[in-house]
Amino acid sequence: EPSQADLDALLSAVRDNRLSIEQAVTLLTPSSGGGSGGGSMDAKEILTRFKDGGLDRAAAQALLAGRTPA
């Protein structure tokens, strides 16, 4: 399960175009075949909204942490 520091680094990389959204989703869902963790939004949607400015960093982190299976 990614830590808050991992999520923060991942969000920074996506925002700075050092990591594509697809690459980030793969890192967030290493063994689930890329499927959502059952959250209301999947990781790709969360990351896309964050990059487009629709979500701030704290909200994106909380959503990603919340949808990651324990």
Rank of each mutant, 00 (worst) to 15 (best):
A58Q: 10
S31N: 11
L47A: 02
R15W: 14
G54W: 08
E1C: 11
G39E: 11
A13N: 04
T48A: 06
T68D: 10
S3T: 07
G33W: 14
T26L: 15
S36Q: 12
D8P: 04
G53N: 04
L11K: 00
R18G: 04
A62Y: 04
I21Q: 01
A62N: 08
S36V: 12
D16I: 03
I21P: 03
M41F: 13
V14F: 04
L28H: 02
S3Y: 13
L7F: 07
Q4P: 14
P2I: 15
A65E: 09
S31F: 12
T68W: 10
A59W: 05
P30M: 12
D42E: 09
A58L: 10
N17T: 03
A62D: 07
S36M: 14
K51Q: 04
L28V: 04
G39H: 14
S31Q: 11
G35R: 06
S20L: 03
Q4C: 15
D56Y: 02
L64F: 02
S40I: 11
V14Q: 00
G53Y: 04
I46A: 02
A13Y: 05
G33A: 08
A65D: 04
L63S: 03
S32Q: 11
D42Y: 12
G53A: 03
S20M: 03
I46V: 06
L19D: 01
A70T: 04
R57H: 09
L11A: 00
D52F: 11
G37R: 07
G53H: 04
R57D: 04
R57Y: 15
T48S: 08
R15H: 06
S40E: 07
F50S: 00
Q4Y: 15
G33P: 11
G53K: 04
S31D: 13
Q61L: 15
A13K: 05
G53W: 03
L19R: 01
D16Q: 10
S36C: 13
G54K: 15
P30N: 14
M41R: 05
T68K: 09
L11T: 01
T68H: 10
L11P: 00
E22D: 13
P69K: 08
A65C: 08
P30D: 05
M41C: 07
L27C: 06
R15Q: 08
L10E: 00
A13S: 04
Q23Y: 09
K51I: 05
G33R: 06
G54R: 15
A24H: 01
L64I: 04
A13R: 05
D8Q: 10
S20H: 03
E45M: 07
F50C: 01
L55I: 13
R18K: 13
R15L: 11
L47Y: 01
S31E: 13
G38Q: 11
V14E: 00
L28A: 03
A43P: 09
V14G: 00
K44G: 05
L19M: 10
V14Y: 03
G33I: 12
A24C: 05
T68A: 09
D52T: 11
I46F: 02
L10C: 02
A70E: 08
L28P: 01
D16Y: 06
A59S: 13
D16N: 07
P69A: 07
D6E: 13
A65W: 08
S3C: 13
V25G: 02
Q61M: 15
L28T: 02
L47R: 00
V25L: 11
E1L: 14
A9T: 08
P30A: 14
S20T: 13
G39R: 07
N17H: 06
A70Q: 04
A24S: 02
R49A: 07
L55M: 06
S20Y: 02
R49K: 10
N17W: 03
S12G: 05
L7R: 02
G34D: 08
N17E: 08
L28Q: 01
G33V: 09
E22H: 05
